[in-house]
Nucleic acid binder design. Structure first.
Length: 212
DNA sequence: CGCCAGGGCCATA
DNA sequence: TATGGCCATGGC
């Protein structure tokens, strides 16, 4: 069993299935993925609530940029993110907002298209692929990097290296990728911010074993 | 008061 | 390829 699978099992025995992403629709996942860039989720929730149950591609495109900025202000970086939201929504509209149409395409095609959208980088693209469209795209984020550095797992230095390492090491399973990232984030918010071995962390025993 | 949060863009070397 | 500055709010 690989180190990754060992970590997964340790986390899973504690967290179980988290059923991410916390959103009511694929489009809300897309919006949330933009808004949460370098931003705490609690602030993203505040911004999402300010749409007052009226979050649709049409509305995002029709809203004057100033009004959109005012709505998403609590999520920070609101000037750039308002532009990003309009850009990614335009891309979504190019598929007529049709999920089945998007899912018929290959992961590679959709990923490269997303990466050409302003404001969509590696992590945002993979988050959208995995959590909005159910593609087997492993999501790497700051928590993942930190976690691997702590153990340590030499998965690589760049985003692509770490992503490829994980995808090659694990079965390409949407549900596995979904819950793995969800658990890494959930655990990372609480533990292992500074110390290598954190008391109470589900990975505590594993940390001790590896560091010894 | 300072630090950071579920990044990405851009300029520079 | 690899740094560094910048963006902005809210919690601690």
């Amino acid at each position: 069993m690989s180190e990754l699978e060992i970590i997964y099992k340790a986390l899973y025995s504690h967290y179980g299935d988290l059923h991410w992403w916390p959103a009511d629709s694929a489009f809300e996942v897309i919006v949330g993925a933009i808004l949460t860039q370098n931003t705490s989720w609690i602030n993203v929730e505040k911004a999402l609530e300010r749409f007052e149950r009226q979050l649709s591609p049409e509305r995002i495109l029709n809203l004057p940029i100033e009004e959109l900025q005012e709505i998403i202000r609590p999520a920070g970086f609101y000037r750039q993110k308002s532009q990003y939201l309009k850009a990614v929504t335009e891309w979504f509209m190019s598929y007529d907002c049709d999920l089945s149409l998007i899912k018929k395409c290959s992961l590679t095609v959709i990923r490269s298209e997303l990466l050409q959208v302003r404001g969509v980088g590696n992590e945002t693209a993979d988050s959208i692929l995995l959590y909005a469209f159910d593609f087997p795209a492993f999501v790497v984020d700051a928590y993942t990097m930190r976690l691997f550095k702590r153990f340590p797992i030499n998965a690589g230095k760049t985003y692509q290296e770490v992503k490829n390492y994980c995808e090659n090491m694990l079965p390409q399973d949407v549900n596995l990728y979904n819950n793995f990232h969800a658990m890494i984030v959930s655990n990372g918010k609480k533990y292992c911010k500074k110390q290598i071995v954190c008391i109470g962390c589900p990975l505590e025993e594993l940390c001790k074993k590896i560091s010894s």
